[in-house]
Design a protein around this nucleic acid. Structure first.
Length: 653
DNA sequence: CGGGGAAGCT
DNA sequence: AGCTTCC
């Protein structure tokens, strides 16, 4: 065995020899779908003649996205109109300020995904997360594992070299992802990328690895590489630029810095919950659930412009916004109870990006007029909006607005009836049946085959679309399976404790959160709980140098073997925080000092980074509890941490 | 930032 | 009501 890595495959094989193929005890399988250049694809659907041309979608003076033909000529997203035309004089520009079509197709995508698996969460107009854990379990029962293989790419691996038996759930996830992408293509004509992983964050991070129209699966052993490969903390979803700047002020420049940064100091800046969440994210741990999409909680419409400086200009803009907004509201069918006006003023206050807003109630009679399509509604709303405007702007003095936004919120389901989500998606059921009156833009009614969302039915693979015929999938949809073959075995939903003893958790640990953790993370955490505060203090100061800014941590790290001479010798503690690349540095830093030392010694002796001997594995297993759904073994990387956890779990017995 | 949204936290 | 996040 080499210290190298990638031989991780070797030790895993070793491990599974003892664990009967249950390497994956990771609870969830999450898919992330990302439509390729979404707006541009929609425009090419609307106008197929565009297919053969470089297309840019323009909003104001920006090209917000473009098709791949344009990208081949150097056009990037979010570039100025001029820059884009410089690179690609042939660029065909389509106006994209009106989001109607995009929104409509976007919901079709979500709805289609939901028809196969109800747990779908939207992110923006062109991304969806799907928790397919249950579907994977049911597939597992009907699948011959020996014929299973990954579909698409596997991050950091040659796909042919990955042992599928070690990653059955993820492999099934990749199959499902591929089928769903095929469905999106055959039914909606949209290509997409997908990521397959154990959490939303990881799935999202990995989905863009291979770009147009491809998919990538992330194995747990590759998580450290994925995370430390990110260019900065702000690249991890959930940490934005503001937060990244605050981190920078603390000397935290990279994801690695964040993993290693003393939690206590992070808590000071961001509060406990945030600090922990951020550090977990940096370590590749994201427990956030896939929260099913519902109808939007607000509808808004806005426009930006160079200048509005008179009341009448403002009024006509507001009127325009409210007209289209009211039409959208009418199609939605819910009653808006609150109206909000937001605006941006010209450079005045501080940085030209503050929005100010005022909101007020909508009289119920007005609200009803909106959803009844009564034309009286708009002028009434305009008059309310103008009052809100006067609360924001002193109209006796000159003013200069660069943006106006109208928003309906506090949407009340009109028929507090059942099935609000599906009624939203299937749209229409507007009282008056308007099906044919609208032009292109609404009436997604074309597929109103609502009901039984979760039932046994499959979205009919009906009419046209046929073209894709071949897809074995279409007539053999994902959920099929219902004819569950007998599954002897322990598929069991055995309740109960896991492989760790909850009684050993520190009192301040949220039990529910902890229970949701993947088993190997639970164990890693447990091991960190065992030290007492004093020790914790001590090793904190040791493992996390006062100035974690550390390029030296970082660079040091990558060369791994060492830079010889170099200053650092004195500075670097005898046992600096240096760890092999596939060891999670945060987890490592949380270990008791003596354990850290022992591990480091082991590594220096040229030991393979983390393989854990089969012996340890088997010991572990016997001591951990029952539970099952597979005994939690597997522990991919960090496997060697296990033995340190043992004492605690042993208490149980 | 840019643009036109939407959501969550405070 | 504002800020921050995401697309």
């Amino acid at each position: 065995m080499e210290s190298g890595e990638e031989e991780d495959s070797e030790w895993i094989t070793l491990d599974t020899g003892f664990t009967a193929g249950c390497v994956e005890d990771n609870p969830r399988v999450i898919l992330h779908f990302d439509m390729d250049c979404f707006y541009a694809q929609v425009e090419m659907i609307r106008n197929p003649a565009l297919r053969s041309k470089p297309v840019g979608v323009q909003q104001k003076y920006l090209v917000v996205t473009c098709n791949y033909m344009a990208r081949a000529q150097g056009v990037a997203k979010m570039t100025s109109l001029n820059e884009a035309l410089e690179k690609c004089p042939d660029l065909v520009l389509v106006r994209g300020e009106d989001l109607t079509y995009y929104r409509e197709i976007s919901y079709k995508v979500t709805e289609l995904l939901m028809s196969y698996c109800p747990l779908v969460e939207r992110l923006g107009l062109d991304e969806n997360f799907v928790d397919v854990t249950e579907m994977v379990e049911s597939r597992r029962r009907s699948t011959d594992i020996s014929e299973l293989s990954f579909v698409g790419h596997v991050y950091g691996h040659d796909v042919s070299g990955v042992a599928v038996q070690d990653h059955v759930s993820l492999a099934l996830g990749s199959v499902i992802a591929s089928e769903l992408r095929e469905v999106l293509f055959s039914r909606l004509g949209l290509t997409s990328c997908a990521g397959v992983a154990s959490s939303k964050m990881l799935a999202k991070l990995v989905s863009g690895t291979f770009k147009p129209n491809q998919q990538t699966t992330l194995l747990p052993q590759s998580v450290p590489k994925l995370m430390s490969g990110l260019s900065g903390p702000s690249r991890t979803p959930g940490i934005g630029h503001k937060t990244a700047e605050r981190l920078k002020a603390l000397g935290v420049l990279s994801v690695r810095d964040l993993q290693l940064f003393p939690l206590s100091k992070l808590v000071c800046e961001f509060g406990e919950a945030n600090a922990k969440r951020m550090q977990s994210l940096a370590c590749g741990v994201d427990l956030s659930p896939v929260t099913p999409a519902g109808p939007p909680q607000s509808l808004s419409d806005e426009d930006s412009f160079k200048k509005i400086s008179t009341l009448s200009e403002a009024e006509s803009k507001i009127s325009e916004l409210l007209l289209s907004l009211s039409e959208r509201m009418r199609k939605d069918g819910r009653l808006p109870q609150t109206i909000k006006l937001s605006l941006r003023r010209y450079g005045a206050p501080t940085r030209w990006f503050s929005r100010e807003s005022r909101q007020g109630p909508i009289p119920t009679h007005t609200a009803h007029r909106i959803i009844n399509g009564c034309p009286e509604a708009v002028p009434q709303l305009v008059s309310i909006a103008m009052k809100l405007l006067r609360r924001l702007v002193d109209v006796r003095e000159p003013f200069h607005l660069t943006m106006l936004n109208m928003c309906f919120t506090n949407l009340q389901a009109k028929t507090p009836n059942r099935n609000t989500i599906s009624s939203f998606f299937t749209s229409a059921h507007t009282p008056t049946h308007t099906s044919s009156t609208h032009s292109v833009c609404d009436a997604p009614s074309s597929f109103t085959q609502p009901e039984t969302l979760c039932g046994t039915t499959i979205p009919q693979n009906n009419k046209q679309t046929s073209s894709s015929s071949s897809s074995p999938f279409i007539q053999h949809p994902i959920r099929a399976a219902s004819s569950a073959p007998p599954v002897p075995e322990r598929s069991d939903p055995t309740p109960d404790s896991r492989s760790v003893n909850f009684a050993d958790l520190p009192p301040d640990v949220d039990r529910d959160v902890f229970r949701a953790l993947p088993p190997h993370i639970q164990m890693e955490l447990m091991s960190s709980f065992q030290e007492d505060p004093a020790e914790r203090q001590e090793h904190h100061s040791r493992s996390a140098p006062p100035s974690p800014r550390s390029d030296d941590l970082l660079t040091r790290h990558r060369s791994e073997s060492e830079e010889p001479g170099d200053v650092g010798a004195a500075e670097r503690a005898p046992d600096g925080p240096d760890v092999p690349p596939n060891v999670d540095p945060y987890v490592f830093s949380q270990l008791p000092p003596d354990v850290q030392r022992e591990l480091r010694t082991e590594w220096r002796r040229g030991k393979p980074t983390l393989k854990m001997s089969p012996k340890h594995t088997s010991r572990r297993i016997t001591t951990t509890t029952t539970r099952d759904k597979r005994p939690a073994r597997k522990r991919s990387h960090s496997g060697s941490l296990l033995k340190y956890f043992k004492p605690s779990s042993d208490k149980r017995s």
